[in-house]
């Protein structure tokens, strides 16, 4: 009986889906490439995740390699380099969050205050541009700019009669350089989503505030920021979900053994373990750990946000 009762709604749901599909098949067709992409690049590789719990050898293949339980995780957590990579990931991500997250919001608020249309458009284009430059070239620019001999930074330091610093070999300089490069590259592009949110604010809210006597500063604090708060929170949740994913290519391109102590993150560690040392199983375990932490973080952030601000990603 119970099963029959359950079966009916399911059947109804199915037939409703079929109806939808028949009416709007073009939309589902457009969705198809993304679904295929996700299956091929995100779901199928999940099959390989099991090697995190196996003594994997390329010759035996994924299925035939023997199970070893949590051995690789034990190896990892007794490895100082891995622990250091976790610590570095968290520190760099925290700095990114602290400085990199507000940057596009501030930029968007500033753009919003520019009244001259041409000036605004030009300024926006200029700050969007770095986003479209390949990471390799960005790393090249950074390396050149901070070079001890010809770099613009050291040249300027020289004007004050100070000795030049070989920034990229100094562990204490890596994080500031990395984080500010990230801001320079992405803040402009990241501001688009906040500008769109600001554009969506009902203009009569501002007019009403003008009549009430609010200054532009007050309008920004009391209208613009609260109005775009839902967008800010959604972006923050996404950001927290990606906290373990620091820009891997840029680190690979900028770090060197001298700066590993502050620059080596989980992803670069996985890369070295997996591809350079051929320990695929240990690398998979490290990657899986990363993913689990990210999953927990995004779930927590979303739940908290839903509870306290009625805004959530899902």
């Amino acid at each position: 009986m119970a099963a029959a009762r359950q079966a009916k709604p399911l059947k109804q749901k199915l037939s409703r889906f079929v109806d939808h599909f028949r009416n709007d098949w073009q939309i589902y067709l457009m969705l198809l490439p993304t679904i295929i992409w996700m299956i091929v690049f995100l779901y199928k590789p999940m099959y390989g995740l099991q090697i995190a719990f196996k003594d994997y050898s390329i010759f035996r293949g994924v299925a035939a390699s023997p199970w070893v339980g949590f051995e690789h995780f034990q190896t990892l957590f007794s490895n100082d380099q891995f622990l250091r990579a976790i610590k570095n990931t968290i520190i760099i991500s925290a700095l990114n969050l602290l400085f990199g997250f507000p940057a596009p919001i501030i930029l968007a608020l500033m753009f919003n205050e520019i009244l001259h249309a041409t000036y605004k458009r030009t300024a926006q284009t200029i700050v969007y541009l770095p986003h479209f430059i390949s990471t390799v070239i960005i790393a090249g620019i950074v390396t050149t700019a901070f070079s001890p001999t010809a770099g613009v930074v050291n040249t300027m330091i020289g004007w004050f009669g100070l000795d030049s610093i070989y920034f990229l070999t100094k562990p204490e300089w890596f994080r500031p350089i990395f984080v500010s490069t990230g801001i320079w590259q992405e803040a402009g592009f990241g501001s688009i989503v906040f500008l769109a949110a600001i554009a969506g604010v009902n203009p009569s809210l501002y007019e009403s505030a003008v009549v009430d006597g609010a200054s532009r500063w007050q309008m920004m604090w009391r209208i613009t920021i609260p109005s775009i708060m839902p967008t800010i929170i959604i972006m923050l949740i996404i950001r927290i979900g990606n906290i373990m994913e620091v820009s891997f290519e840029l680190i690979i391109l900028l770090y060197q053994p001298a700066t590993w102590s502050t620059a080596d993150v989980v992803n670069t560690f996985v890369y070295r373990q997996g591809l350079e040392s051929g320990q695929y199983d240990v690398a998979a375990a490290a990657g899986l750990f990363n993913a689990v932490v990210a999953f927990v973080l995004v779930m927590t952030a979303n739940t908290l946000s839903r509870r306290y601000s009625r805004t959530s990603l899902w």
Partner: peptide, 13 residues
């Protein structure tokens, strides 16, 4: 002066 707007212009937050 004080103005009442067509779409109320209330602050949602």
């Amino acid at each position: 002066v004080a103005m009442v707007f067509q779409n109320y212009a209330l602050y949602p937050h």
